[in-house]
Amino acid sequence: MKSNVLHAMDAGQIPLKLVRTSQALDPTLVIAQPTFLAAIKLCISLGGFEGDKQVYGALGIDASHWTRIHRGEAHFPVDKLLALMDLCGNEAPLIWLAQSRGYDPASLRKRETETERALRFANEALEAERVKVRVLTDALHGNVT
């Protein structure tokens, strides 16, 4: 059986990776989902897509396999999970998995990137300099505490 998915390279187009801006997500909404499939459906729903075709097409999943996934007759491809969360702009499946394995979803946080770390250090150094300026300015004006 031939796949219904038309790959972008086959159509003479350059494939573009669609990534939505990350959205805030209430973990209690995710934890309320009874199954991993429900968490995946919530992830897609929160992504704001007009139809499933936008999702399975972007992920390169065959339409018939997608239908079986939604009916619970097939599993979502594990190697597409990260792409799904990027595509939808939320991490509902990750939060659901963490909770189901006994981890506290409220304690999950992203690691700091090198850029974020450098920015944090620069901001801390700047604040230290501002404190010095304030102390010296107060001392010059005779406001010693």
Rank of each mutant, 00 (worst) to 15 (best):
residue 85 M to T: 04
residue 143 N to M: 08
residue 138 D to N: 11
residue 109 R to I: 07
residue 125 A to G: 02
residue 81 L to N: 02
residue 71 R to A: 14
residue 73 E to P: 00
residue 131 V to M: 11
residue 132 K to I: 15
residue 59 L to Y: 02
residue 98 A to T: 13
residue 109 R to A: 13
residue 62 D to K: 05
residue 142 G to K: 10
residue 71 R to L: 13
residue 90 N to G: 02
residue 103 Y to D: 13
residue 105 P to Q: 05
residue 87 L to A: 06
residue 119 L to W: 01
residue 86 D to I: 00
residue 98 A to W: 12
residue 86 D to F: 01
residue 106 A to C: 08
residue 73 E to H: 10
residue 82 L to M: 06
residue 139 A to Y: 14
residue 101 R to A: 14
residue 90 N to V: 00
residue 79 D to M: 02
residue 88 C to D: 03
residue 80 K to Y: 00
residue 125 A to S: 07
residue 128 A to M: 09
residue 64 S to T: 14
residue 136 L to F: 13
residue 63 A to H: 05
residue 82 L to A: 10
residue 141 H to G: 07
residue 96 W to A: 09
residue 102 G to R: 02
residue 128 A to D: 14
residue 109 R to V: 11
residue 112 E to T: 15
residue 59 L to K: 03
residue 100 S to V: 02
residue 88 C to K: 00
residue 89 G to L: 05
residue 99 Q to T: 13
residue 104 D to F: 03
residue 78 V to H: 03
residue 105 P to Y: 09
residue 94 L to R: 01
residue 119 L to I: 07
residue 90 N to Y: 03
residue 128 A to K: 15
residue 65 H to K: 10
residue 116 E to G: 09
residue 144 V to M: 12
residue 144 V to F: 12
residue 99 Q to M: 06
residue 135 V to P: 03
residue 67 T to M: 05
residue 68 R to S: 12
residue 117 R to N: 07
residue 122 A to V: 03
residue 67 T to N: 04
residue 73 E to L: 06
residue 126 L to W: 15
residue 128 A to G: 09
residue 104 D to P: 00
residue 99 Q to D: 15
residue 106 A to M: 13
residue 125 A to F: 11
residue 116 E to V: 09
